[in-house]
Design a protein around this nucleic acid. Structure first.
Lengths: 168, 168
DNA sequence: TCGTTTGTTCGGATAGAGCCGAATAAACTG
DNA sequence: CAGTTTATTCGGCTCTATCCGAACAAACGA
């Protein structure tokens, strides 16, 4: 009974992880796989994940790869002695979020900045509105870059502290 | 000649906006429409946007709606005297980003928190690992909620300041 | 060595998003 | 009051992401 209650509670939370995954640009399967690993006592292999999630082997293989790349889960090669690969969930989600920001957002910001600077350089100093607008945009993006770069050195607690204690 | 240069520079930047739009979960058309409005001297109507972007009227109508909802562009109903709707770009992108965070991320965080709390409440105080894990998750999400809530009250400059001047 | 288990890669089916054109609604102009 | 211009909505087409099953590769155990 209590056992079943626990299973239900677990299932609810995992479902909400599926939902969250979509918001952050991942697939539902990614949300579920992460969720199952999050609640698992021990590291799980791909066949075990197939059992637990109901997804096909190939899906598990692909999704675990991207989740590993992002840093949301970790590969533990050969835990016991077998040749199986085992996966565990990163519980400090903050670190993964930082990585995602580093990898996607910061990269996008820098690519855009490069384009903007190049476009700006090919225009005479004061060539009408275009130039002004581009310069405006450049400043905005330099601002973003600073913020993201600074923020990625903070833990979640530090960041909250910094925001809470800041006196304008 | 210089005119053409300006057009080229403008086009480059708009293309990079199309790219950025995809990273932030918007369509390429959204990026281009925003870009055209960003560089436009005056507010533009839907037919004018059709000319400038090459997209169909219906596409412009739909995309402007979502961009308006997000806050990246603004509706100016009846600028001159006609019944036309005109659109302008919000140049302070920071405000829009905050809105998006408020609307999507914060909302997602709060939905998840509600689910977690409900699941937690239905479990006895110390029912094994599930309970611990869920509690752990709850703390993490409460942390996130604080950070996002705090950050949404800051301007970009203030946020940078807060991060720069924070002494651990 | 051969069969079994595990993991990756490939092609294809399906669902959803993005975009278009046509139909409709609504407001202005003569 | 027509006729025109503007804006939204609807159905359909196309392209992409997701997921599956099958084929393949690699490592283990008897």
């Amino acid at each position: 009974m209590s056992d079943e209650d626990r299973a239900i509670a677990r299932e609810r939370v995992i479902e909400s992880m599926e939902q969250s995954a979509e918001v952050y640009g991942l697939s539902r399967s990614a949300g579920r796989i992460y969720g199952v690993l999050y609640f698992s006592e021990e590291p799980l292999s791909i066949p075990e994940l197939v059992d637990e999630t109901g997804y096909a082997k190939s899906t598990i293989s692909n999704v675990t790869r991207t989740l590993t790349r992002i840093g949301l889960i970790h590969r533990r090669s050969s835990a016991g002695g077998g040749r199986r690969v085992h996966y565990t969930a990163e519980r400090e989600i903050w670190f993964s979020l930082q990585d995602v920001f580093q990898q996607y957002v910061l990269r996008e910001i820098q690519t855009t900045l490069r384009t903007i600077r190049r476009a700006q350089a090919q225009l005479p100093a004061d060539s009408g509105t275009e130039s002004e607008r581009i310069e405006e945009l450049q400043e905005t993006y330099e601002h973003f870059q600073e913020i993201v770069t600074l923020a990625s050195d903070f833990t979640a607690a530090e960041l909250r502290d910094a925001l809470e204690s800041y006196d304008r």
